[in-house]
């Protein structure tokens, strides 16, 4: 009888692997336990964990990861700018671009980091950051839209989540889902710290940055902003910073980025609409 139960449980776990069904997994665990085989029940549970960890991270989990990463970004970059009108303006531009992005169905929020370096970041679940230093380099709304489009593309293409899912560190967390965040906060912290290090220090893979440039350019032009605006900003930044990889280890060099964006403009026939909204940008950012 016991062997029959064991066989039934084994068959169930096999069907679980094929069908990926959580209910079947739990039924298999129950039968194995009832048949007095806790080791088999544990094995079935383990298979469920492993199979489960292969599934994508859902929005609720993404939101927890994004919020925790946002805490670290804000802490390392000296806090956020507290100028309500300016914050509202960058959020309006961000929302305008995000609303017709490939992932408009999640909330996006933009914060300005109190930092003079020239940079921008995106954490999962729509947490977007631009530094005060970068805003000072931007000359019009179309350039800002392109920068935010780049960051929104990182979120819509789930670049950081891909990194996290691939990392061995997350393996420990995936096995038990994000309930680890409360039951094993050290493991959760390790995952977040690893992701923040990748985002702020090491940089994403170059192909992900190039994808964010090209996809973000499409997002910004969908709203009607001039397609050439981003090329203008990248060119000025190259003139300012050069193509020194030591300075820009987190992104491909500017010449390569400009070339990729220009190819996208030509390949997708993105329009130079002439809509850059320089005056509105100047009016809204005069106190930056």
């Amino acid at each position: 009888m016991r062997s029959n139960h064991g066989l039934a449980a084994t068959l169930i776990v096999l069907s679980l692997t094929v069908a990926g069904c959580a209910e079947v997994q739990r039924a298999g665990e129950d039968i194995a336990r009832q048949s007095g085989n806790p080791r088999l029940a544990g094995a079935i549970h383990g298979v469920g964990n492993v199979v489960g960890s292969l599934f994508p991270i859902g929005y609720e989990e993404e939101s927890s990861i994004g919020q925790a990463m946002a805490l670290q970004v804000v802490a390392r970059y000296g806090g956020v700018v507290d100028q309500p009108e300016l914050v509202r303006y960058v959020n309006l531009v961000g929302r305008a671009v995000a609303n017709t992005s490939d992932r408009p169905d999640i909330p996006y929020r933009v914060a300005i980091l109190e930092h003079e370096s020239i940079n921008a970041f995106a954490a999962p679940a729509g947490y977007i950051f631009v530094t005060r230093g970068l805003l000072k380099q931007i000359r019009n709304e179309a350039e800002l839209a392109a920068v935010l489009g780049h960051e929104i593309a990182h979120v819509s293409q789930k670049h950081i989540l891909d990194v996290i899912q691939r990392s061995k560190r997350l393996a420990g967390v995936s096995e038990a889902g994000l309930s680890y965040a409360t039951s094993n906060p050290a493991a959760f912290k390790s995952v977040i710290d690893g992701a923040v290090k990748k985002l702020l220090d090491e940089g994403l893979d170059q192909d992900k940055e190039t994808e964010a440039d090209t996809v973000g350019e499409v997002f910004a032009t969908r709203v009607g902003y001039d397609a050439e605006a981003y090329v203008g900003l990248l060119t000025r930044l190259r003139d300012l910073k050069g193509d020194d990889r030591a300075l820009f280890k987190t992104h491909p060099n500017f010449s390569a980025r400009i070339e990729a964006v220009q190819k996208t403009i030509q390949g997708k026939h993105l329009a130079a609409t002439g809509v850059v909204l320089q005056e509105r940008f100047a009016r809204m950012t005069k106190r930056i």
Binding site: N49, G52, P56, E61, I106, A176, G177
Partner: peptide, 21 residues
């Protein structure tokens, strides 16, 4: 967009309690 169907199935299989997080 944000299709969570597969993610929720995976979450269920991992036995995680999302509401606790």
């Amino acid at each position: 967009g944000t299709n969570d169907t597969l993610a929720k199935l995976g979450q269920s299989m991992r036995g995680s309690d999302a509401s606790a997080t």
